[in-house]
Structures are given as C-alpha cells and as structure tokens.
Design a protein around this nucleic acid. Structure first.
Length: 344
DNA sequence: CACAGTTA
DNA sequence: TAACTGTGG
C-alpha cells in the first residue's frame, strides 16, 4: 500500500490550536478506506441501514468532518479519479488479497475467533463508486469543498498544498511526499474536543530532505527502490537499505542499477510522480451547513439518529476563535475568508 | 472512527 | 476529569 517511510521520518506533533484556521487537502479515499476497515461490529460486519446498505463510510466522513470543523480545521476532501495505467498490477493484487481475506474472515467466524474475524473483515473493505458519490453529497451538504481529481487523489492533494490552496496534504500514506506535498499531515483522528487531545503529526518535506541529506529526486529514488503503487521495488530492499544506497549519491541510473532495477523501465513510473495528472481547481470555498440536506441524507436516507446528527452539527458550528496575533496567524485563513466572507 | 454513558 | 466500555446504523 503506502510507502514504508515510517522509519525515515520524524514527525512533529501538532495540537489542535496549531491546525485551527488551516486548510487541509484530505486524501478522501485513504480516509474512507480507513473508515470502512475500522467502523465495524465485533464480528467484522460493516454498519448498515435497515435496507442492508453499508453506512460505515458515511459515519466516518460525517463525524470526522464535524469534529475537524469543530476544531476550526478546514478539510477539503479530494477524491480519486481514474487510476494511472501503471497501477493495474497493484489493483489486481489488492483484489486478490480481498478475496482471500473474505474467505479467511468466514473461516475465523466459523471457528468463533472474533478477533481474527474482525481483522480479516477489515481487509475486505471495498469503496464503491456509489459510496464515494454519497460521501461527496454529504460533504457538500456540510458546506465543505469537494474536489474530484482527474487521477490520483494524493497527487491532487499534494499539488493543492504545493500551490498554497491548502496548508498541507492529509493522508496516512507517504506517497503524498513523492507527489511533492510540502507538508504531510498524518494521524488526523480527531479524538473529540477533549483537552490535551492528540491533534496530528506533520512531516515537513524540506526538513525531511535536509535531515536525510538527500534531494527531492533522491527521495523519489527511495520510493522506486522500496516499491510504490506503480512498481515492485528491489527484492530485499526496505527503507533503511534504500536510504543507505541513495546516500551514496550515484545518480539516477547507477542507483537503480546497484539495486538490480532497470532505469529505463522505471522512467514512466518516475514521471507519474514528477508530473502527476492533476487539475487546476478554483479556490476552495466553505459554506454553511445545510441541516435539512444532511438530515435528509443521513436520517431519512439511512436511519441515523436525528439527535446525534444535530448534536454533531452543533459542535461543527462552534468553532474556536481564529489565531490571536498576526504572527500566529501566519499562513492561516481567517474563518471569514474560509467561509466566503459570510462567517456566522 | 467517534460518541455517549458509566465508573472511580 | 480522565479512563474505560458499549453503541451507533
């Protein structure tokens, strides 16, 4: 899945006030897949409405978004378009892995092993076109901008951060860094309004390169060596070995050759990262929550509890004040700007 | 995942 | 108030 960069990066912890007033280009598919994997019952069965239609994606998107807004964080949800042709192999492998997890889930259930069952069930998650559209509809009703990327959502999110339309890209996958995001926000689980709640971690791309002593192209090389969604990587080479090799600064061809990879074959893969297919998008605008539309979708459409929905919308409206001093406010958007000059 | 109710 | 546990759909 994502690049194994955990051992290479040293993230900086951010509390909620540090994120307030900032726009985040959220990798929607990454977040929703996590919701589908984790918002499940004890036996691994996903949540569903009375008609048996899944609702885990809606629960996750709704509560994540209202929690972020309640913290003053401004999420722009960026959805995937058509995957690059080079991803076909990865997509096939994922399909096979899901089939396998499906049978292992059933086996665990038959054996009465609920813990394994839930873990296997998580790996069967499928995000359908209809589910993505439903999430987009919900987000629009919440007054939150939705971007449909032409191709990879992470690439679009990275581009938006690079262009300053967002402060950072938000994803659990490190791929955003290869796509050029200047900052990557991870761990965006918005554990309530509670004091001392964790907030999130940020990885600054320039700081990362400086700390590792490598260039942008060399970071891409590490990706190619360990493998991405678009290539297999060198056998036996993980992040540590890849970094050691890249630090010899042998250059593009020699580095790949040293790991037994064919540079010519990897040029199109590198191009996906260097020049990803992204769209120019208008400045994202946040609007007011359309209570009626949210309730129609969640309460009437899927049997959510109206009390819970109203309570969460209320929390989303109760945003913290914008940063106190101009210095602290640097790089942030005031809530009046964010809400199209119509702050409540 | 995030909420809500419970417990100490 | 914080930590824990069951529930939501």
């Amino acid at each position: 899945m994502g690049l194994p960069f955990r051992d290479l990066v040293s993230p900086q912890q951010l509390d909620w006030p540090a994120l307030a007033g900032r726009r985040l280009a959220v990798d929607a598919y990454n977040a929703i897949y996590q919701f589908l994997a984790t918002i499940r019952q004890r036996d691994g069965q996903p949540f569903s409405d009375a008609a048996g239609r899944p609702t885990s994606h809606l629960i996750g998107v709704f509560y994540r978004t209202t929690a972020l807004l309640g913290q003053g964080v401004l999420p722009i949800w960026v959805f995937d378009g058509r995957p690059p042709d080079l991803k076909a192999g990865t997509l096939r492998a994922r399909f096979v892995a899901k089939e396998r997890a499906e049978s292992e889930w059933k086996e665990a259930l038959a054996a009465g092993d609920l813990e394994t069952a839930k873990r296997k069930a998580a790996a069967t998650s499928r995000l359908t076109r209809g589910m993505a559209e439903e999430c987009q509809e919900l987000l629009t009703a919440l007054g939150v901008p939705v971007i449909r990327a032409p191709s990879e959502g992470e690439a679009q999110a990275a581009a938006m951060a690079a262009q300053g339309q967002a402060w950072a890209a938000a994803s659990e996958d490190y791929d955003c860094l290869l796509f050029g995001a200047p900052r990557l926000v991870r761990g965006l689980a918005a554990r309530g309004q509670r004091s001392g709640s964790p907030g999130a971690q940020v990885i600054d791309r320039a700081e990362l390169l400086a700390a590792l002593g490598i260039s942008s192209e060399e970071l891409l090389l590490i990706g190619l060596l360990v493998g991405t969604d678009f290539n297999d990587g060198a056998p036996g080479v993980g992040p540590k070995k890849a970094l050691t090799l890249v630090r010899r600064h042998l250059g593009w061809e020699a580095t790949l050759a040293a790991a037994g990879l064919d540079a010519a074959e990897l040029t199109p893969v590198a191009e996906v990262f260097r020049h990803p297919e992204v769209a120019e998008v208008p400045p994202p605008v946040f609007g007011p929550v359309d209570d009626g539309a949210v309730e129609r979708l969640l309460v009437e459409g899927h049997g959510f509890s109206p009390e819970r929905i109203r309570a969460a919308i209320g929390r989303a409206r109760r945003r913290p004040p914008v940063a106190a001093s101009p210095a602290e406010n640097h790089g942030r958007q005031t809530l009046i700007e964010a809400f199209g000059g119509d702050a409540p």
